[in-house]
Computed example of a mutant assay.
Amino acid sequence: MSNELRSRWSDSGFTTVTVALKQAAPADTGCALMAFALADQARPEAFDVVSRLKKRGIQVWMISGDTPAAANAVARQLGIDHVMAGVLPEQKSEMVKRLQQNGHNSNSTESTISASDTITDSLQKDNKHRPFARVAMVGDGVNDAPALAQADVGISVGSGTAAAMETAPVLLMRSSLYSLMTLLDLSQVVFRRVKLNFVWASMYNFVCIPIAAGLLYPIADRGLPPVIAGLLMIASSLTVMASSLSLKLYREPKH
């Protein structure tokens, strides 16, 4: 197999596998019988999902065990600017840990890092303003389980292996990557509702506690009746509960 053909396959995103025959004699170098070009097919929605994530200001990294040439070819197809290539299964969690420690800069330039590089120095160059980063890891294989456990948010796809699904705290029930966008959208909606409930409860107690303590006694010459105080307390809880239950009205955005 010529180096030119091997290079062309790698540049096209294929991983080359060669089958060789070697005699038992130590001096025999053997000969190549056949070569295969293997490649994983990207999900049809992958490019659109990556574009949506980048529009949200989320930096997308691809961690792959393929050669840098093959990994870069796939990354170019999907619009991914940052690639960690040649990573062994046990090194994936270390890569995630280093990303967490060194953070990222959303304006950083395109970069490719192999497992043999000193990636700590490479990542520090891209991050002068944010020393730490929150990392979400999406994976579906057995080899992804340690990285899913290391990430701040481990996300497994429903069609993945049992090890990945048991390790990741978040499970996408559908195999479509659009579920990831729904997860992000729903998380923001829930977090906004939590903040709204907190602000409402704080303001409610800020106003009602002084009244219950007798703030109006000098004016009305009487305190707040216990029955009224109890009803107001129940009203506060019911309001927060109704606000939370309104999340049932959430509808998945159209993709």
Rank of each mutant, 00 (worst) to 15 (best):
R76G: 11
M62H: 05
V135Q: 00
P218K: 04
L88H: 10
Q150S: 02
Y178C: 10
A42M: 12
I113Y: 03
R134W: 12
L99K: 06
A46M: 02
D48A: 15
L172D: 04
T109C: 14
M1F: 15
K92T: 01
K54Y: 05
P89L: 04
A24D: 12
A75N: 09
P44W: 06
D48M: 13
L88D: 03
R130N: 15
S156A: 15
M137K: 05
D66M: 07
F191C: 03
G141Y: 07
N102E: 08
T118N: 15
A212E: 09
A147K: 01
Q124A: 13
D152R: 13
R56E: 06
Q101H: 04
P225C: 10
D117E: 13
T112P: 03
R98W: 10
R98Q: 15
K128D: 09
V74G: 07
A201S: 15
S236L: 14
I155Q: 04
V189N: 06
S246F: 05
G223S: 10
G154Q: 03
H255M: 14
W61M: 11
A145V: 01
T167H: 05
A75D: 09
A70T: 08
S93F: 00
T109W: 07
L215C: 07
A149E: 00
M233D: 01
I228K: 03
M1I: 15
E252Y: 02
A242V: 07
E4A: 11
Y250R: 07
K54I: 11
A235L: 14
A149T: 11
H255D: 14
D140H: 05
S51F: 03
T120V: 13
D185G: 00
M233Q: 14
V199E: 13
S175Y: 07
P226G: 10
E252L: 12
A39E: 04
D185F: 02
E90T: 14
M181A: 09
I58F: 02
I113E: 01
D28G: 02
T120M: 05
A42T: 10
A235V: 11
A242T: 09
V194A: 11
G158Q: 09
S12L: 13
A164C: 05
Q41S: 14
L184W: 08
A39F: 06
I211N: 05
E252R: 13
F132A: 09
A37Q: 01
L123A: 13
P226I: 11
S187W: 04
Q100G: 06
S243C: 12
V74K: 06
I219N: 06
A85V: 00
S106T: 05
V190Q: 04
A164M: 07
Q101F: 01
T16Y: 04
P253E: 07
S111N: 10
F198C: 08
D40K: 10
L5D: 13
Y250F: 15
D126H: 12
S179N: 06
D117C: 01
A42S: 12
L196Y: 12
G57D: 04
I80D: 03
N107Y: 06
S237E: 08
T15M: 00
T109Q: 15
D28L: 06
L88F: 01
I113R: 02
P225G: 10
R8K: 12
T167D: 04
M165P: 05
S187M: 11
F198N: 05
S64E: 02
S7W: 08
M233Y: 09
T112Q: 10
P253A: 11
H104M: 01
